[in-house]
Amino acid sequence: MAKVPVQFTLNGSEKAEFIESGTTLLNALRDKIGDTSPKGGCHQGTCGACSVIIDGELRLSCLTLAETCNGADIKTTAGLAEGGVLHPLQRAFLDAFATQCGFCTPGMIMAAKVLLDRTPNPSRDDVVEALSGNICRCTGYEPIIQAVLTAARANSQNAA
């Protein structure tokens, strides 16, 4: 099958690749570009581990065809830290012991980031709603909810 060109911005860097038509964004990111932070849990859009941010929207990269992302601005958890300093969400997840095996963590953090970008001071219900598309097998969710609330508080204190 003929390969098709794709070009997008990933965490601020221009990326251009030739891919098989029909390749998912998840596979393009992981296998072509080498960003393995989005995880392939179910490959059918039910677990949320592959979540990325495309033009500001939370998207499941396992259900997104890479060739539909031409010109898009894509963000993944791998691009959150700045100069070795962790993003407040990453810091909060660590401090809250909100990760065990870590497989769901990048998707959780992406979902939380979209929430906090839009709702800087979310309620607990807002956080639960935002995380409801992401499955975690280890933590029982409560430490994750607490981490997101903590990161929101840290953000609002920095802004003040």
Partner: peptide, 17 residues
């Protein structure tokens, strides 16, 4: 056969623990 059918409580189903 997948997470649609193999059910687990989500973040909205948590008991006070």
């Amino acid at each position: 056969t997948d997470f649609n059918q193999y059910l687990m409580p989500g973040p909205g189903d948590l008991a006070q623990t």
